[in-house]
Computed example of a mutant assay.
Amino acid sequence: MESERIRHPTAVNVELESMLKDQESLTEKRTALLYSLGNMLPLMQSKAELNEWYESVVALNKQIDTHNVQYLMKIRLQYEKVCQECLSKVQECKDHLEQLVKHTEINCRNIYQYFQDALTLFDNHKCSLVRHENELHSKMNECRNKHENLNKLREVNLDVAVDKLRTQSSDEKLKAQLEKVYNVLDFIRAGNGGGRRGIGRNGGGLL
């Protein structure tokens, strides 16, 4: 819009120059015609000569008016061509902007859908992690309770075996009961993850 070709179209300048040139020529003719009236006086013999002079002036004025109208029409047409070109550019820009707006809307909608899907996956994954964590805690509590109950049962068996050990009256029975005590201790250690440790079988106690 700010280019020299738009602000000062070449075709318009050409028409203006032609109009001014022809206008100058016609104006000179009219000036000469007007001055001719002075030359005719006081020798003018009749009204007919005056009427003829006036008709020439009127005709020249009409010619000048017609000339001006014609050139103004030409200049207007040239400007209309420029305006039409500008309107075409404006329409082209408008179409481009509309396509850009549609493309932007599609991109924004795709981005929104992408993050919406990502959040859904994240929520599902989070729920899955919470579920697995709860299941793990539940199994750990279950294993801990089973282990505690088993240890209590083993301790009870150990107490029973020790009590029986104190009541044995013969060496054979004492050795047999002591072996049971050792077995219970081994079982308790194995259950606690300590493995089987050496236990004195000759009354020496734990090694």
Rank of each mutant, 00 (worst) to 15 (best):
L174M: 10
N68M: 03
R131N: 14
E49I: 05
T10C: 02
H147M: 04
K21Q: 14
T66I: 10
L185V: 14
K139D: 15
E28C: 06
D163C: 02
E15C: 01
M40G: 07
A118H: 14
V156E: 13
K180E: 14
E55N: 09
W53M: 07
N192P: 01
C83D: 08
L100V: 05
V184S: 04
E24G: 06
Q113T: 15
L178H: 09
G193S: 13
V58K: 10
E133Q: 03
M19W: 06
I199E: 09
N61Y: 13
G38R: 06
R30I: 14
A161G: 01
Y54C: 06
H103A: 09
K175W: 09
H147E: 00
Q168M: 15
L72Y: 07
G204P: 01
Y79I: 13
E105Q: 10
Y114T: 15
N157L: 11
I6D: 07
Q23S: 09
T31I: 02
L178R: 09
T31M: 02
V57F: 13
S138M: 13
S170M: 00
T27H: 14
D163Y: 04
R189D: 04
K81Q: 03
L178K: 08
V90Q: 13
H147P: 00
G195S: 08
Y71V: 00
V12T: 06
L34H: 01
V82D: 01
T31D: 11
V58A: 14
G205D: 13
L100G: 05
S18M: 14
G194Q: 14
L119N: 03
H8P: 01
